[in-house]
């Protein structure tokens, strides 16, 4: 008789990738996708905005909204930081870089869970 027990744990992490822009135009759609994911049980998110070239306050509101929702659901959210200067500038200027945990790549972000 072996006294060894093996259990496997897998953590479900949803990776949301935005490209091009995250602004007032596509914020409603992004919000809806997040809602759908969370209704399907997702609480851990990696949001990849590395390829986002433009972001505005409505886009940031989408990210804050997600952060608040996952925190309430005992989940977490990590951000893959924008490669484009203007998008990064907005995050820095509004000090959201202090709010979001940011990583260079999706893998790094996923491994941080």
């Amino acid at each position: 008789m072996s006294n060894l027990q093996i259990t496997e744990h897998t953590k479900r992490i949803s990776v949301l990738t935005f490209t091009d822009r995250l602004d007032a135009f596509n914020a409603p759609d992004a919000r809806q996708q997040i809602t759908d994911q969370m209704e399907a049980g997702a609480v851990n998110f990696v949001v990849d905005i590395s390829q986002v070239t433009f972001m505005d306050s409505a886009g940031i509101a989408v990210l804050v909204n997600l952060l608040k929702k996952v925190t309430q659901a005992n989940g977490a959210m990590k951000l893959v930081r924008p490669a484009h200067a203007s998008a990064m500038r907005l995050l820095r200027m509004t000090k959201f870089d202090q709010v979001f945990k940011m990583f260079g790549t999706v893998d790094e972000a996923v491994n941080a869970f």
Partner: peptide, 16 residues
């Protein structure tokens, strides 16, 4: 432009 000295209000439970 003057930079922010912290994130917006009510994003986090403590204002940083």
């Amino acid at each position: 432009l003057i930079d922010a000295t912290g994130p917006p209000l009510c994003v986090l439970p403590q204002h940083l």
